[in-house]
Amino acid sequence: MSYTFTVSPDFNPDLISGWFFFNTWLQKNLNEPIHLELYNDFKSQRQAIENDEIDLIYANPFDASSLVREKGFIPIACPDNASDEAIIALNIDSEISNVDELQPGLRISKTDDPDVNMVCSLMLEPANLDTQNTTSSTRATYVLVAKDLITNNADVGFFLADTYLKLSEITRQKLKTLVCSDIHDIHHLLLAGPKISHKRDEILENLLTMAEHEKGLGVLKSLGFTKWKAVEQEDTEFMIDLMETLES
């Protein structure tokens, strides 16, 4: 039997090769065939999940909720010392310096990244801005969101902080951060679906010792991680509760 592994589409494009290295490393260590399937957008990935085509996923916190509660996925691990934060950015020449200065009619550029969009929307609340008095355009990638800001086709852009900070130097020079979230408690995590859940402990053991071996360490570096840490069911339930609390 072959398993299918996928990664939340909000990953940094520079890390594509890292995920392929990781998949190869995992196959070798588990001695199981695993196919890495990367989706361009959340819609097509969700369709694959809905069709029960996914066995292993590095999921964002928002999607983890439905995967655990509706699809029976179980948590395995997450990168150590990593948390998902979101950034609202502006054109470098914008005169806006804090959220309170934003006005109704604000033009937002964003991707379809659900947790980033949720957190950024919360960060607009102090200016009394919501979907009723703003307009938004959804772009396929964060690079296109940045382009909207640079060309003044949007007033603000919503970004995953990690991805924003890894935009090219030339792009970053044309943008500035208005606000960055400070939450600490939400993060991407690796989940096992029902077909591969019997291997959860074996996968975890391999991940936890990954940094101790030269090849494993190289793969971790290619993903931008230092090491993995175990995630228990209750840790995930807490994060799901937290996402539910934020959805308001």
């Binding site: 957190v119 102090p126 960055c180 939450i183 934020l246």
Partner: peptide, 10 residues
């Protein structure tokens, strides 16, 4: 509260 800060407790 500074912008962007979210307090979480259980």
């Amino acid at each position: 509260m500074p912008d962007g800060r979210l307090i979480v407790s259980r």
